[in-house]
Simulated assay, not measured.
Amino acid sequence: MNKQKTLVILTPGFPANEDDTTCIPSMQIFVRGLKQSKPQLHVVVISFQYPFTASTYSWYGVEVIALAGKGRGQLFRLVTWRRVWQALKQHHSRYKIEGLLSFWIGEAAFMGNRFAKKYNLPHYTWLLGQDAKAGNHYVKQIKPEGRSLIAISDFLAKEFRINYGITPEHVIPTGIDITLFSALPVKRDIDIIGVGSLIPLKQYGLFINVIKSLSNKFPNIKTVICGKGPEMENLKKQIHKLKLGNNIQLNGELSHPEVLALMQQSKILLHTSEYEGYSTVLSEALYAGCHVVSLVNAMNTRPPQHHVPDNAEHLPVIIADLLSDNNLQHERVLVYPIQVIAAKIATLFGH
């Protein structure tokens, strides 16, 4: 009997159900896009830490095995890893595993690499951001070859080469699903939007300072920030201190559709992160018709609607020029459709 061809995806976390749109939206879009483009391929996701309840369930036709590690300490992590191995062995005996795809160089890549070597299977790891920074001990343990690495951007491939002397052979960004967007609005009543976790790396304190600078010329500037995180209280205090309560709205964590809807009401996405692989929100904002202003130039080529200053001090200048342009266009810009991205990944595994 011919076994069904199967691709196994290893990840720290995955949506608990189809309504869980806030859990790594870029991964959701990719997995769903992969399943839609390759409906005959059996896709299995093994999620190490989240959801926090162990179960096996179907997600848009994808088999998900949640092991509920919950991010606990070393002993519990070893137990989780043993369960991952058991799940992989069961699927290897039941299906024809075409290969393994690991998200991040972390525990998922560590386990994927071990299993792939034992059973002589293709294994690729997708570098998505901070895993390319110096000090990732999993790199030394895995000793990956460049041909097995996929970098999400040109910047990340270069960063990994500088830090570890290994050049990822593949550069494939995450894609966007254009079916999630509604028709473009006639009016854009939000001047600037920010989307992302409220953590120091994202530099939302800088974001707020930029708005303060702009408010001198645009006293009625309207800004929203979508996201949650440990910096929330500090940002609230900063907004209050700078008397920007009428200019900046902290929306907290919103569902993915709600964020996309707000993007389509916005003129500019400001991305102040000091380090970035290539955030999917950049591509989403471009397709939503926003101009994008970011500190990190992640790709060697970018559309003219994506503006990158020489340094942070130039952020207000670029944004002021955009807001002052009465003829500023807000057409859709599609750079990385998910169908193309899913096809590139599938090709690596011979599909």
Rank of each mutant, 00 (worst) to 15 (best):
I193C: 03
N300S: 13
Y164H: 08
V45K: 05
N163R: 14
R114N: 15
W81C: 12
G165C: 12
E63P: 02
L254M: 13
H92G: 07
L184E: 07
M263D: 04
T347G: 03
I345C: 04
K187G: 00
S58K: 10
G245T: 02
L295Y: 11
S213E: 13
I162F: 15
G146L: 11
L180R: 11
V195I: 12
E63T: 15
I152C: 11
V292L: 06
E276I: 11
R82G: 13
M111H: 09
H306Y: 09
H307I: 13
V296G: 06
N311G: 02
T174K: 07
L206P: 01
A87V: 10
A134H: 13
I338P: 08
R72H: 11
R147M: 09
L128A: 15
G175D: 02
G350E: 00
K140F: 13
F218T: 01
A132S: 15
L323T: 01
F115C: 04
L348N: 09
E159N: 12
D191A: 03
V224D: 00
G245L: 00
G73A: 14
L242E: 10
G196D: 01
H92V: 05
S55H: 12
G99H: 06
S324R: 09
L78D: 06
N251W: 04
P309T: 08
I97H: 07
K241Y: 07
Q238A: 01
N220K: 14
E145G: 09
T80G: 09
Q249H: 02
R77D: 05
L242R: 01
K5T: 03
T280V: 15
G106Y: 09
E284D: 09
N136P: 07
E258R: 03
S197L: 11
S273Q: 01
Y336K: 10
V195T: 05
D131K: 04
I46C: 08
N113Q: 13
K267Y: 04
N234W: 00
G227L: 05
V333C: 10
K118Q: 14
P12V: 04
A288E: 03
N136T: 11
Y164T: 08
D325Y: 08
H123W: 12
V43D: 06
W85Q: 04
H351D: 07
T56L: 01
A54E: 10
H291W: 14
L286E: 04
S148A: 14
L100T: 12
L254H: 02
A66C: 02
P15F: 04
Q264L: 07
V308S: 11
L328T: 03
I318L: 07
L254K: 06
P230L: 11
I319D: 05
H256P: 00
H42Y: 06
K243I: 08
I65K: 10
A285L: 05
K70G: 03
A261S: 10
G135F: 14
A312R: 07
L214V: 06
L214E: 01
G99W: 08
K217E: 15
L250T: 00
S37D: 10
S153F: 11
S55Q: 14
N17I: 13
P185Y: 11
Y119P: 02
K143Q: 14
V293G: 09
E145A: 11
E98L: 15
N216T: 14
N234I: 00
L244E: 02
L269P: 00
L121D: 08
K38D: 05
L34A: 13
V293R: 05
F155H: 12
